[in-house]
Design a protein around this nucleic acid. Structure first.
Lengths: 126, 126
DNA sequence: CCGTATCCGAAATGATACTG
DNA sequence: CAGTATCATTTCGGATACGG
């Protein structure tokens, strides 16, 4: 039992954590951050590398990350325009904990899926 | 740069991770899991210890966690009824990565807040 | 005590069209 | 190329009332 440590989560009723989680755990943020871990990328690069994301959601996600200081946005005065995105040190520091969670998710995905099927079965037949 | 590792996140377009994240990163799940880390608790215990949660959302959150095999739900045939919730080993194994993320969130909250204020300032004045 | 049922408003996301 | 604007849809969560 590691109850002493979970005060980090429960501390202020979870407000500090959830303020960040709200930002991190939307549909695209972690995917954008992970993609930018390969280095400087342009808008179109990201759009191509992240399957399914719309221009609108990519723009919104990038703007929020920039606002929070996790990425930089550099506009080059050229024609055609070139805009480059890169992780800041803060943004890079998010990668290890994100990987920890991703590792857990992937390791437990089969078990969770099995549990869901068993649960659905149980709800149907009793 | 740790790009080689982020394939865990980007692997399948992030689907494996997001399937879990959808479940984990709603408003209450992590808070319920962290609270249950102290041991077996009843519905009312949880309701009292988690400020602001409604009966409805507590029920929904607990049902989803039970469905995914992260908690057990034990009904005792008594009057008045007694229902006990506890983490499964899978549920407990979520605590360390959750703490890693919480640690990051709390460590970086001041910097992010500062960045947000600077960004708002910038948007107002130019 | 431990929920379920219903309704409603807010927020997130997607589709589509248009622009400097 | 790198967005913005607008609209429709979906999903989430809160409030309230009721039930075994």
């Amino acid at each position: 039992m590691e109850y002493e440590h979970t005060c980090m989560i429960r501390g202020d009723g979870g407000r500090a954590l959830r303020a960040i989680l709200d930002q991190i755990c939307n549909k695209w943020t972690l995917l954008v951050v992970a993609t930018l871990d390969q280095g400087i990328l342009r808008f179109t690069d990201l759009h191509h590398q992240i399957p399914g994301i719309s221009q609108r959601m990519l723009t919104l996600t990038l703007r929020n990350l920039e606002r929070d200081g996790l990425i930089t946005r550099t506009v080059h005065a050229e024609v055609p325009p070139r805009v480059e995105y890169a992780l800041t040190p803060t943004g890079e520091s998010l990668i290890p904990p994100a990987l920890a969670l991703a590792g857990w998710a992937i390791a437990n995905a089969p078990g969770i899926e099995a549990s869901r099927e068993a649960y659905a079965e149980y709800r149907q037949n009793g």
